[in-house]
Design a protein around this nucleic acid. Structure first.
Lengths: 218, 218
DNA sequence: TCTGATTATAAACGGCTGTTTAAAACATAG
DNA sequence: CTATGTTTTAAACAGCCGTTTATAATCAGA
């Protein structure tokens, strides 16, 4: 079963290097040499570098979406005919995000990859993620809509992305920030610790008063 | 004065391409051909690609820091012996961020560049920005400290970065989000509009209740 | 054990990268 | 006009890129 071994060794190495340097800055030769695998193996097993990038994400997002759907199923069967509270929804999502990579001790990598998916060019990646995993986000957004009935649709849309930005930005840039925090406050900060700090901020942000209406010509 | 012309034409083109595709994905040949300038001009006028990247940032950040220092000076002379309210501080920063690129109609580019500075590898860039512009952020953070005396230092540190993440992430990924928003809500969203929406969320996030203390062994 | 498919390997492909060189063009001050 | 310093230009440099090819090794089933 040398095949599986090669494939997973490529994936394991690629995700670390991608997370550290980004996609364009990581060459196939970087990956294959560190993984002690022949250069051509990537194109043989995955077809192309783009497909490898997508495979790296699929390995996280497939179990994530499956579990998150299950978690939402359970919540929906618990809260019948009444909206699931926002805090419960956020809690459920946070737990699922933590659960999946925890089994491989790669939470940091996963977070960094999520950040890269948003910020690196890689149009094919966004299309891939949207096509394969867009539905679970749509479902989540609909539940958030029911949990915050007083929020105008557009406002909720933007606030959800504000909060997504907060979380992904923070957790994906964690290493840099952690260095500063430890130097300034001598305090070691774990990811779980950060999520504990993030929760009240996110909830307060979602529940913030509505902005004053845009000024128009009077 | 062909020199200045070449230099600014390189900067103008480079900042747009960097903002669109990122640093590694933009080659000097992309830049020089689009700018109608000889390839060697970049190395002649700037020395290297890294130096060009830094020059692109300096052209925004030099006037920004100068004006922001001035704005903070004015606030400090207005609020003597009493803390400047958080809202006022945030308002002042937002106005300065908007002011600088407005003169060249390049707000989108500036925001995108800020996002890239955080998320792209480019260690030299972070070091450059920290070394040249770190002091204004330090000053701002100190004023925020006085404005939020009840917040523990570590908590305030993290929340500032949470909010920084929200703003930069949103504004730098604006184009992608705007497409979705317009499709779903038919509503055109300007940057000023987004900042109007961001303000109450950021303020509420900074003023959120403290998180429950980390659980320890009982 | 032999066969046929799967996987691993080394080598080469064309193309693009940032940078350097040396010569040409230009501007400016004496 | 001439000499000097600055800027532009075309060409070449070595090096890395993703991908492909042809060959070798390995494996599974009959």
């Amino acid at each position: 079963m040398a095949q599986t071994d090669t494939v997973t060794r490529i994936l394991d190495t690629a995700e670390v290097l991608f997370a550290e340097r980004g996609f364009a800055e990581t060459s196939l030769r970087n990956i294959t040499s560190k993984a002690k695998v022949n250069l051509a193996a990537v194109n043989y097993h995955f077809g192309s570098k783009k497909a490898l990038i997508q495979a790296v994400f699929a390995r996280y997002l497939d179990p994530f979406t499956e579990r998150f759907h299950t978690a939402l199923d359970e919540l929906e069967s618990e809260y019948v005919d009444r909206p699931i509270p926002l805090e419960v929804l956020l809690e459920s999502m946070a737990r699922t995000v933590l659960e999946v990579p925890a089994e491989r001790n790669s939470l940091k990598v996963f977070m960094r990859l999520l950040g890269l998916a948003y910020t690196q060019a890689q149009g094919h990646l966004r299309r891939f993620i949207q096509a394969h995993y867009g539905s679970v986000f749509t479902r989540f957004a609909e539940l958030v809509r029911r949990a915050t009935p007083d929020l105008p649709d557009a406002e909720r849309f933007w606030r959800l992305h504000f909060m997504l930005g907060t979380v992904i930005f923070t957790l994906s840039g964690l290493d840099a920030l952690r260095d500063i925090a430890e130097k300034d406050y001598g305090e070691h900060v774990s990811v779980r610790d950060l999520i504990r700090r993030l929760r009240p901020v996110v909830v307060a942000g979602m529940n913030a008063p509505l902005p004053e209406p845009a000024k128009t010509v009077s």
